[in-house]
């Protein structure tokens, strides 16, 4: 089985969110970048398939040279090789088109992605990629098994889970549950040493007409301070929720 894991390189959850250039660009000053948390579940599941069922695992990102440490980390975790498509995409459609081109050329059986990137929370790329490739697609996946090309997956739905059956080739966008949190892979010393020698190919982008672009950013208005209600004044809280906030 040939597996491709799509990796999004994102600011760590605790990063300060600020903008520069007249609020047109994200301010990367002092920001720590990490593998998108959902993608870590995807990569860890890919490693499980590699070890238990035999598979090759390629990781791919669309991004500039600053994303390479993130790809090296994936190699240290155990991916066989990495691909970087050398462009800073302007939207998810562009990312999906770039990824689709490489995927077509390499005939992957399974493409694993995260449910969404924690930066723009777009939740666009996986579905678009599946549609562009005409692969079967499962979103919000919380568990996947594959036996000789037959895929059984469970996905989150509003209020529960649904079990779905499909076949390879497929795009599966997942989250916690693909593996349990305790089974997330982290690089060890040997992995880090080996990662240095593993191939990281740089692919030049195509020319893609951009469908959407971010013009500028805004921060939410400063929140007014929390209104404190004394613990002995529960009626006061109920009154505020009813008459002021109008939520009960």
């Amino acid at each position: 089985m040939k597996i491709l894991v799509c990796i999004s390189h994102v600011p760590d959850t605790t990063s300060k969110i600020n903008f520069t250039d007249n609020n047109s660009a994200f301010d990367t000053t002092g920001v720590q970048y990490v593998i998108n948390p959902y993608d870590e579940f995807a990569l860890s599941r890919a490693m499980w398939f590699k070890e238990k069922q035999g598979a090759t695992v390629t990781v791919i990102t669309v991004g500039n040279a600053t994303t390479e440490p993130t790809l090296r980390k994936c190699l240290a975790i155990g991916a066989d090789d990495a691909i970087r498509i050398n462009t800073e995409a302007l939207d998810g459609f562009q990312v999906a088109k770039e990824l689709a081109e490489v995927a077509k050329a390499n005939a992957y059986d399974l493409i694993l992605t995260g449910r969404e990137s924690i930066d723009y929370n777009g939740a666009m790329v996986p579905g678009m990629l599946a549609a562009l490739l005409d692969f079967n697609f499962i979103n919000a996946c919380v568990g996947v098994e594959i036996e000789s090309g037959a895929v059984t997956a469970s996905k989150e739905i509003d209020g529960g889970t649904e079990t779905l059956a499909t076949t390879l080739p497929a795009v599966i966008a997942g989250q916690k549950g693909l593996v349990e949190e305790k089974d997330l892979r982290i690089p060890n010393m040997r992995g880090i040493m080996m990662a240095r020698k593993k191939p990281l190919a740089i692919v030049e982008p195509q020319t893609i007409e951009v469908a959407t672009k971010a013009i500028n950013f805004e921060k939410p208005a400063e929140k007014s301070a929390c209104k404190l209600v004394d613990a002995s004044n529960i009626d006061g809280l109920i009154d505020l929720l009813h008459n002021e906030a109008k939520v009960i």
Binding site: I17, F19, D91, V210, A211, T212, I215, N216, F217, E218
Partner: peptide, 8 residues
């Protein structure tokens, strides 16, 4: 944050 996006 919020992001103003242009769709072309």
């Amino acid at each position: 944050a919020f992001n103003n996006t242009e769709i072309n």
